[in-house]
């Protein structure tokens, strides 16, 4: 079976990134999942077994000075060295900032076609077929490459395939970063103290808009989200009004989400907002304006005041969980 080289992301603490299972799952749909991971010299052996459990049949540990402190360069050299070893038909990386920077540079180096922000992968005979969700999910576009290995970046959380566990072989290569690279000077952890799921890739999202009226009222969004174990989102208007931090922004600018359940509270549903959430399986909207465009995409719409409907909903949900 043909090798599919998968660029594994690691966290600040050198553990496997949360994209790992999905990337190896995507790789297994095309061929034989081979993992490459950039590690600091002498580190990473613990990752081999973990990658095998997630489907890697072979793991290449690329030891590189500067891993964790240089941006792009260690992962790019790791991927390049691994590609020379295993001659992949495809290279798969996460569509994260780091993943796509590395994949894009690698594609240029390898003269390969790049299929970016892919939500599904498959094969059709020898051809690798990638599916893109385009213009806020209004279109589904299938594309392939015409020469070289396919370089694919996978939208985070979009591919949920799990590759069968394997007992991997492993190899270590030593690579050196290019002469100039961006260097990390410091990192800051945001301690929100919250156990809420991350917005990107969340299965449930509760989002608030300008209709909430104030930052104080935005707490209703937090409360409903916590009741449902959902991530918190927001419209651009709510962010611009200062109700919530910009990281919560859902839409054309901001995060695109595709959860099982999306609850929009006081969000009118401008076209730019819908572009970031209309692929949700079920959409619920509460808005006092009966003509708000959010109702055009809602499976269940409530024309009413969020400040009275949401507390009643939370209490009704509480009654249910007690019963």
């Amino acid at each position: 079976m043909k090798n599919v080289l998968t660029l594994i992301e690691t966290t600040d603490t050198s553990e496997l990134g949360n994209t790992t299972a999905g990337l190896l799952g995507a790789a297994s749909r095309i061929g034989n999942p081979v993992a490459v991971v950039a590690v600091a010299p002498g580190h990473g052996s613990a990752l081999v077994g973990q990658l095998g459990a997630l489907g890697a049949t072979h793991v290449i540990l690329a030891e590189c000075e500067g891993t964790g402190s240089l941006l792009v360069a260690p992962e790019l050299e790791a991927l390049s060295a691994a590609a020379r070893q295993v001659d992949p038909v495809a290279v798969i990386a996460a569509n994260s900032v780091a993943g796509r920077d590395v994949a894009a540079r690698f594609a240029v180096r390898a003269g390969a076609g790049l299929l970016a922000d892919v939500v599904a992968v498959d094969t059709d005979g020898d051809a690798i077929v990638a599916t893109h969700s385009v213009l806020g999910g209004d279109y589904t576009v299938k594309a392939t490459i015409t020469s070289g290995p396919a370089v694919i970046t996978v939208r985070q959380g979009a591919i949920k395939d799990i590759a069968p566990a394997a007992t991997p072989t492993s190899a270590t290569v030593i690579v050196t970063p290019g002469s100039t690279a961006a260097t990390i000077l410091s990192t800051t952890l945001e301690t929100t103290g919250s156990n809420r799921p991350e917005l990107r890739g969340a299965t449930r999202v509760v989002a608030g808009g300008r209709g909430l009226g104030s930052a104080e009222n935005f707490i209703l969004v937090d409360e409903l989200a916590d009741k449902l174990g959902a991530a918190v989102g927001a419209s651009r208007a709510a962010v611009d009004a200062g109700y919530v931090e910009q990281g919560a922004q859902v839409g054309q600018t901001g995060v695109s989400v595709s959860p099982d359940l999306y609850i929009a509270l006081g969000i009118s549903g401008a076209i730019q907002h819908r572009a970031g959430m209309q692929t949700a399986k079920t959409i619920v909207a509460i808005n006092s304006d009966a003509s708000a465009p959010i109702f055009d995409v809602a499976d269940f719409g409530v024309v009413g005041d969020v400040l009275t409907v949401v507390p009643q909903l939370i209490s009704a949900l509480g009654a249910q969980s007690d019963s």
Partner: peptide, 15 residues
Amino acid sequence: GRRIVDEGNAGHELA
């Protein structure tokens, strides 16, 4: 989808 106008019970209906 289904759309209702809140007449005091919408929270329960949504639940």
